[in-house]
């Protein structure tokens, strides 16, 4: 299971704009670097990040090899109604990781 840290409030006032921060462990090997034996290390990156609030996709990001190892992403969301924020990372070699956070809107 991937190591993931998500910072999102558990509760929010209706209509509040909340910040979501997410960090995931991933090497983000660029595919341009030589390894110890001089051979180029094969590319291994996260290509895509999406955030959905219940069923609605609210934010996504296409990444490139220029995103740092252990990628960090922060964005905002309107706390419109109570729901589950679902974060999902996908990438090379079938990489998939997910994290869910329940946010109660009052």
């Amino acid at each position: 299971m991937a190591n993931i840290l998500v910072n999102a409030p558990k509760t929010a006032k209706r209509g509040a704009v909340i910040e979501i921060k997410a960090l995931i462990m991933h090497q983000m090997e660029t595919g341009f670097r030589p390894g110890p034996n001089g051979q180029i290390l094969p590319r291994n990156i996260i290509e895509h990040f999406t955030a959905t609030w219940d069923d609605a996709e609210i934010f996504s990001m296409e990444m490139s090899p220029a995103i740092s190892a252990n990628p960090f992403v922060s964005f905002f969301a309107v706390a419109s109604e109570s729901g589950t924020l679902h974060l999902r990372w996908t990438g090379d070699h079938g990489f998939v990781a997910e994290e869910k956070v329940a946010i109660a809107v009052e």
Binding site: N3, I4, L5, V6, N7, K21, A22, L23, I24, M25, A69, N70, F72
Partner: peptide
């Protein structure tokens, strides 16, 4: 300073 921004915390989690 920020535990959810410090990549070292991913290793603490592990």
């Amino acid at each position: 300073d920020d535990d959810t921004a410090n990549p070292g915390m991913l290793f603490v989690q592990q």
